[in-house]
Design a protein around this nucleic acid. Structure first.
Length: 245
DNA sequence: TCCCAGGGGCCGA
DNA sequence: TCGGCCCATGGG
């Protein structure tokens, strides 16, 4: 079986096992019943890839991408809820705030001093590049030039906020696919990204769902201490096979 | 109490 | 260019 078939098979198995994940969650949706869509209490919109719909949604996703750096989403949700409660989650809201005030609001997400600085930098770039204008999409380089935005955050913003067909790589992707034997933990971000993008159709919806499913699989079974006996892909995993020799 | 979580910047070798 | 360190909270 070639790589393309392996990657597509894994996607199908993940999707059957975990169902559509509804990424990227838009927390502000959870309190509004304005849209005829099945989103849950945390803003996940399962099976509906039509989000984000507004400039505010896009900005919220970009903010979430920064806040979730090396942090559990449950913590980020508290921080986003604080911003929503103060009506501060829209483009232009952070630029004129005092950093210590912003830092206290996002405190639950951890690294709050660093992240406050990152959010201000993101907001400034948002204004300077005019990303609130319709059809004005950031380039990867523009995003990477923002202090606090690295490759994963930039690609998450491109894929989930701006509907660009970019494959997002994270620590989970490395963990799962190195255990299977398709890449190495030492491979660079770009190497692993190319591995997926060279073998899969450049489809925004496929990339959206695939990354979300990878996160779910890593959280539920392919943990640091993996639960291999219950794993839906253990039949094709080198780590599992080697452990049974 | 300890481990882990949807990284990125900085610095020295 | 790369490894190591720093940033920090909250849930299991």
């Amino acid at each position: 079986m070639n790589v393309k078939n392996i990657l597509e098979d894994m996607f199908r198995i993940f999707l059957m096992s975990y169902k559509p994940q509804g990424w990227w969650p838009v927390t502000s949706l959870a309190s509004k019943k304005k849209y005829a869509v099945r989103f849950d209490v945390n803003g996940y919109h399962h099976g509906d890839y039509g989000f984000p719909k507004t400039n505010e949604h896009k900005f919220e996703i970009a903010v979430g991408a920064v806040l979730t750096q090396n942090t559990a989403w449950t913590n980020v949700r508290h921080a986003i809820a604080n911003l929503l409660e103060k009506n501060l989650l829209f483009p232009g809201s952070f630029m004129n705030m005092k950093k210590p005030v912003l830092a206290q609001l996002i405190r639950p997400s951890g690294y709050f001093n660093q992240k406050a600085k990152k959010l201000v930098a993101l907001d400034k770039a948002w204004q300077e590049y005019g990303w609130k204008k319709k059809n004005n999409i950031p380039s990867r380089e523009q995003l990477l030039n923002i202090w606090g935005v690295g490759e994963e955050t930039a690609d998450s913003i491109l894929l989930y906020a701006f509907h660009q067909p970019v494959f997002v790589v994270d620590a989970y992707t490395k963990r799962i696919f190195s255990r299977i034997g398709l890449c190495s933990e030492k491979d660079s971000y770009r190497m692993i990204q190319s591995f997926f993008m060279d073998h899969l159709e450049h489809d925004e919806i496929l990339f959206n769902e695939y990354h979300a499913l990878i996160v779910e699989h890593a959280k539920s079974l392919c943990r640091k201490k993996p639960l291999c006996e219950n794993c839906c892909i253990n039949h094709s995993c080198s780590r599992y096979k080697n452990s049974r020799v």
